[in-house]
Design a protein around this nucleic acid. Structure first.
Lengths: 207, 207
DNA sequence: TAGATTGTTAATCGATTAACAATC
DNA sequence: TAGATTGTTAATCGATTAACAATC
């Protein structure tokens, strides 16, 4: 294991490997080769091996990777064993869809707190999470020591929400508002801009 | 304009430029420099100019880019002037959120048809779209000559839905199911795997 | 041993960035 | 002309892939 920075693209693929291993594991597969893993995801086996090699040597030459072992290693690498609690701001259509998205809990990630400006939504429940008033944002984040926040509010208020989240102690933001958030260096922002997906398909059809 | 293939990363940024120009345009801005455009999006001005240069020369040296002119060029490049009709398969939480997502119509993209397996949802309306039965999938796609499909169904049925969409004439798929779709070379698939976003934040917090 | 598959090096390919002549 | 900003070349940086020795 060399001390080289991991490519950003590798980090994007690790979750795919992890989820495919979960699937194989549930089907009783005990050992998998980089070829089989890659084929299941449309990724070359060379790339699978290279990606994993940034973190250690998890396979056996001539044999392959033990599924349960590699899963545990990926859980550790991805930090999924932290069982992060996540706060979601904005309980509109998209926010509700995220809360009810089944995929997160299987990954040790849990949207535990939801905030919304609409008083009708406050004091009700959404999935497993209770909905709080926007005024309680800072308190909810601080009191529960939450590090990950999701922004699913209109663009106009996204920056303000980000500032408040960070003020409360949030270190990583998943931003669905189609706007560039200005945050300090130590805050990680991941933009999930849904219209890019559809526009890029339009582009490919036209070219 | 050289005959070089455009980087995939450039295509991802064009929608950002376009939307930022829309915003500036609505604020009455008539001319914008690559520096201003880039600063608004967190992208270096050099990259803005390079990206645009793959498609032509849209600016004036010493001056900048005329907002309305560059917007029109980007509309053409991105194919937004085609006013694509889009079919959405799966009217669950995520599907509903997508239909109600305001950002698409402003871009000349319209989710006009929605299909779902649940008979209760069929014959009702969702946004502007009517909901059809899954059995009508092929017919809806073919009759309306639709090229873009969105898959928002559970993973287990995603491949089958993809096959049917393609059979009906779909050429581009926006896939929200966390599974690798197997399609022929001429079909463009864009995966939008929502759990990757959250997992990658977990990764960055742990490293 | 023969066959399979890993981990890693080196080569290739692709994307970003710096620098600057062209020009408004 | 002086200042600003584009479009483009060349250099740098980063990611993928091919090839293969190591080894089960």
């Amino acid at each position: 294991m060399k001390n080289i920075t991991t490519p950003a693209t590798t980090v994007e693929r690790l979750p795919l490997y992890y989820r495919y291993l979960q699937k194989m594991d549930s089907q009783g597969v005990e050992v998998i080769s980089s070829k089989e893993l890659g084929d299941g995801l449309g990724i070359p086996s060379t790339q699978v091996r290279k990606d994993l090699s940034y973190y250690g040597e998890f396979g056996r030459r001539g044999v392959g990777y033990e599924v349960s072992d590699l899963m545990k290693n990926l859980e550790r690498i991805l930090g999924l064993d932290n069982n992060w609690e996540v706060v979601l701001v904005g309980a509109g259509n998209l926010g509700q869809a995220l809360v009810n998205y089944g995929g997160f809990k299987k990954l040790g990630l849990d949207i535990s707190y939801v905030l919304d400006i609409d008083p009708d939504k406050v004091k009700s429940n959404l999935g497993n999470a209770q909905v709080y008033s926007m005024k309680e944002l800072r308190r909810v984040v601080t009191d529960n020591d939450i590090r990950i926040g999701i922004i699913a509010v209109p663009s106009e208020v996204a920056q303000q929400v980000a500032d408040e989240l960070i003020d409360g102690g949030i270190k990583a933001i998943w931003n669905f508002a189609p706007i560039h958030l200005r945050v300090s260096e130590d805050i990680k922002v991941r933009d999930e801009d849904l219209s890019i997906g559809l526009i890029s398909l339009s582009y490919y059809l036209s070219n």
